[in-house]
């Protein structure tokens, strides 16, 4: 903690990427607003925004990677990256906490309340139980069974946690082929996870009648698993970038924070999944 500053602060030169990023988000937001309100033209600004954002991400990360490979970052900068990544992951934890909180609140409070004696005045026939789609003309649906695809997915993600660690271990030993192999395996596991998740969603929609609009159960189920799936996708994308960099010979056994950041992120996604498995599918 009592880190102090050695000389040689790296002055990042002025950069246009931040402004580009802001423009991208402005277009994405405007397009999104239009689309959500059924103005088809929204695709145009939305598309421009996405495109600009991707362009910005490539440009910005490219710059940082070049700086890193060019040896401009000293130990202190490396340390800064570590702090930053940790707190970024913490902020992600809090984001998920909001949705887990919603799930907990619905199960623990709102649904039991809706079924209690006083609320018989409003919802005479509602019996509080979980899963539920609420008291107003609830559709028939079934919840996702925990011990099918979800259990397999748990295994996949847990093993992918092992494979990144393997890759990391190889990187530290300077064993590049094992590094690449471990990473590739991790990516395959991640992609399989996403594929299975998509199949599961299809199953939910077509056979279980479980939809995003299926009351509070559907809402919490799809928002939690959906945001998790989105994060897995992000994680896989980052792993792919790291894989390419590894193939291109980036990273040194003692200097590879880019790799570590992605693996931290991957572990975080893993842990969130475990919580999901327990609270969304199982209990």
């Amino acid at each position: 903690m009592e880190q102090t500053q050695p000389t040689g602060y790296y002055f990042a030169p002025p950069s246009h990427w931040p402004v580009v990023g802001s423009i991208a988000l402005f277009f994405m937001a405007s397009g999104g607003v239009l689309l959500m309100n059924s103005y088809g033209v929204g695709w145009i600004p939305f598309g421009i925004g996405i495109f600009t954002l991707v362009y910005m991400l490539f440009g910005w990360f490219g710059t940082v990677i070049r700086e890193s490979e060019g040896g401009l970052f000293n130990a202190q900068v490396d340390h800064s990256f570590r702090w930053a990544m940790s707190w970024f992951i913490f902020s992600e934890v809090m984001f998920f906490a909001a949705f887990f909180g919603a799930l907990w609140y619905a199960r623990q409070y709102s649904v039991p309340w809706l079924g209690d004696l006083d609320n018989k005045l409003l919802w005479p026939d509602f019996a509080a139980h979980w899963p539920t789609a609420g008291p107003y003309r609830p559709p028939e649906f079934s919840a996702m069974h925990a011990w099918g695809i979800p259990a397999i997915n748990t295994l996949l993600l847990l093993s992918s946690g092992v494979t990144v660690t393997w890759a990391h271990w190889a990187l530290k030993k300077g064993d590049r082929s094992n590094l690449i192999f471990g990473l590739a395996l991790t990516i395959i596991l991640g992609v399989t996870f996403i594929t299975l998740q998509a199949i599961e969603y299809g199953h939910a929609y077509s056979e279980l009648n479980l939809k995003l609009s299926t009351g509070v159960f559907g809402s919490t189920f799809f928002m939690l698993t959906g945001f998790h799936g989105f994060h897995v996708t992000l994680g896989v994308t980052m792993l792919i970038v790291i894989l390419f960099r590894s193939v291109a010979g980036h990273f040194k056994p003692d200097h590879h924070f880019g790799f570590e950041a992605v693996s931290w992120y991957w572990h975080f996604v893993d842990v969130v999944w475990l919580l999901l498995f327990v609270f969304v599918y199982w209990l």
């Binding site: 619905a106 709102s110 809706l114 789609a133 609420g134 008291p135 609009s213 509070v216 809402s219 919490t220």
Partner: peptide, 8 residues
């Protein structure tokens, strides 16, 4: 979704 809707 029905996060904030009692009907759901």
């Amino acid at each position: 979704t029905s996060f904030f809707n009692a009907a759901g």
